[in-house]
Simulated assay, not measured.
Amino acid sequence: MSFVQEIQLKSLGDERGQLVVLEGNQAVPFDIKRVYYIYGVDPQIPRGFHAHKATQQVAICIKGSCKMLMDDGNQKTTVLMNSPTQGVLIDVMQWHEMHDFSEDCILMVLASEHYDESDYIRDYDNFLKAVSI
């Protein structure tokens, strides 16, 4: 069984188009304190390469596609993100790397906490030490 939790987001739509609603503690399993998005990424340049000590996030590829490598220190898996109704929960202490961005990719991330640099683990060996404690 995978340690990665995918969240299926409900799309409401008709002939006028589609609507996806993202509410904290509903479709998203936490209060949303920060929203950011990544776009205009060179497809050859990966992003991420960190884990969070306290922040939970949900990543949604609202346009285009990318791949997300998820790593809990014991197992790794890669998730193809290519639907605006697919969310991937990035839980605390999960190393994540995004790569293979399509040229039109827009990756939106909802975070449970405000930005705090001290929440980041940016060195993979330090991450492995922290999860083995």
Rank of each mutant, 00 (worst) to 15 (best):
M1N: 12
S2A: 08
S2I: 00
F3D: 02
Q5L: 10
Q5D: 08
L9E: 02
K10H: 13
K10F: 10
D14W: 05
E15H: 15
R16N: 05
L19R: 12
F30V: 05
V35K: 04
Y37P: 01
I45F: 13
P46L: 06
R47P: 02
G48S: 03
H50W: 09
Q56S: 11
Q57R: 11
I60V: 15
I60W: 01
G64S: 08
G64A: 09
C66T: 07
K67M: 11
L69G: 01
M70T: 01
G73E: 03
K76Q: 15
T77H: 04
V79E: 04
V79Q: 11
M81A: 11
S83F: 04
P84V: 04
Q86E: 07
Q86R: 13
G87A: 05
I90V: 15
V92P: 00
M93W: 10
M93A: 12
Q94L: 12
W95L: 09
W95H: 10
H96T: 00
E97C: 12
M98G: 07
H99E: 07
H99Q: 09
S102W: 01
E103H: 14
D104M: 11
D104F: 12
I106D: 00
M108G: 09
V109M: 08
V109S: 10
A111I: 05
E113G: 10
H114L: 13
D116Q: 14
S118Q: 13
Y120H: 10
Y120D: 05
Y124A: 02
D125A: 15
D125E: 14
N126R: 13
L128A: 04
K129T: 08
V131R: 11
S132L: 07
I133N: 11
